[in-house]
Amino acid sequence: MVSFAAEPIFRLGFFSVTNTLLDTLIVDGVLVGIAIYIKKHLKLIPGFVQNISEYAVETMYNLTESVAPERAARIFPFFATFFIFILLANWSGLIPGFGTIGFYEGVGKSKTLVPLLRSATTDLNTTLGLALVSAVATHVISIKIIGIKEYLGRYFSINPMNQFIGFLEMISEITKIISLSFRLFGNIYAGEIVLGTIASIFAFIAPLPFLLLEFIVGFVQALVFAMLTMAFMAILSTPHHTEAKEVSHK
């Protein structure tokens, strides 16, 4: 059974490089490679690859614009990067060899397989890191757009009733981080466990439906994380006095 914690593969001084970190680096490498390729081959008359990337970028941008029309330019990079990164990280775990190629550690009964590579999102450190980035970015954008005064006004007030609501808001900010990180981690980690279990029962054909399911789950979880981040950013960067007006517009 795979452990919760990512297994260290080797050490660089005090820094232990885990299999999930290796996967993160691979995903990063792929993303940077794609980005450089697209940037180099960008033309006014698009080719096949450019068409796909343009379609993807434009679709994500339009989605952001439909939620937060005036703040789309600021929110869009976070939304898109969360989505693409998490999607690739989730799907990377489904590649044959991930979680199965490794080396044995320990002796006798405690001998376990340590996979060389493991999906980055099956590590709580990754998902918590993403959730923290999402939360900090949300608050920074909020302060930049609605101003420090109104931002603080959301959490602190002289009015005891409003102060109570502010207190609840503070708790909700913390729970946002926890829910974002654990949702992603739990879903993908559970998926890996299911796949491993099914494969240990019967390794041929039987895991196929689960692979397909995990494929969808990976996509949905990436979308959920990105969409929630976008929604939080949109909500927190909406000034109080225009909120009602914006709603009535739609």
Partner: peptide, 16 residues
């Protein structure tokens, strides 16, 4: 690892 992942993500965000 958490810090490493955060830095990682910020770099990839910037590059993308």
């Amino acid at each position: 690892l958490l810090v490493a992942q955060i830095v990682n993500f910020l770099i990839i965000l910037f590059i993308l």
